[in-house]
Amino acid sequence: MPANAFNGHTDYGIGLGLRVPHYAHILEKKPDVAWFEIISENFMCGGGRPLEVLDRIMEQYRVVQHGVSMYFGSADKPDREHLRRLKALVKRTHTPWLSDHLCWGSVDGTYTHDLLPMPYTLAAAKTTAAKIRMVRDFLEVPICVENVSSYAEFHASEMTEWEFLSEVVERADCGILLDVNNIYVSSRNHGFDPYVYLDHVPHHRVGQMHIAGHTKFEKYILDTHDHPVLDPVWKLYAYATRRCGVTATLLEWDDRIPSFDEVHAEALKANEFIADAKSARKKPTAPRSRAA
């Protein structure tokens, strides 16, 4: 949805991930970018260059925080120091919403720094939703949870990924950061129809979307964020936009990062699909998965 409670009733358009190789270009050239997404953990420090750059960026641009290590799905309780630092950053950036992943990655205080898939069980959904609520109440900012790409499925799972995502966000009453590339990657790795996934998530909770590139290996696809967005992902994005409405969208490019202009141009390709979606939304969109 363009503006909803889960993205702070904003309508941000197309943004970019703020990455170190582009700092100098952005600060010097001040390119016309709707907003930047920052990785929260990179700025949860005491001072120095990271916060100086952030403050200078915020003088010119809107910033949204995206986290990679809250691990809503970890059975551990949230780390208090992590929360304290995150809240300090939220106060600094005034981020209208904050996102992190629907995954786990730490246990007994040890961190993997990976986004590990959840077993899709009701108990896991309840535990995860409770943690999201706890974090949101502490941070006092709307939260969107992002679906991750995955390479393994568990026997213990009792439901599909999209059912699990829906269960969690309904119980937590939070938003969704819909990563369209992740849906595509996981659909290829696990053999499900990505359009079915998109048909079944609660569209009114989608506060943001991610698009990115991936890498195909012989037996699986890896979510590498080191390529332009591939055609099947653009098609999926167009469909997601028709179903959910035009939503704040961010291109992730984290490895083999090309020039700022190249990344920006890639992100702006989303406009074509947004225009199509706008015209298509004047007519009701039939669920593709059921129509097919």
């Binding site: 970890s74 059975a75 551990d76 786990w104 246990v107 007994d108 077993p119 069980t121 009701l122 108990a123 896991a124 309840k126 535990t127 213990a156």
Partner: peptide, 14 residues
């Protein structure tokens, strides 16, 4: 055997 509680989830994650 079953992931029907937070404790079982913790054991699974460990």
């Amino acid at each position: 055997a079953r992931l029907d509680s937070a404790r079982a989830l913790l054991a699974f994650q460990r």
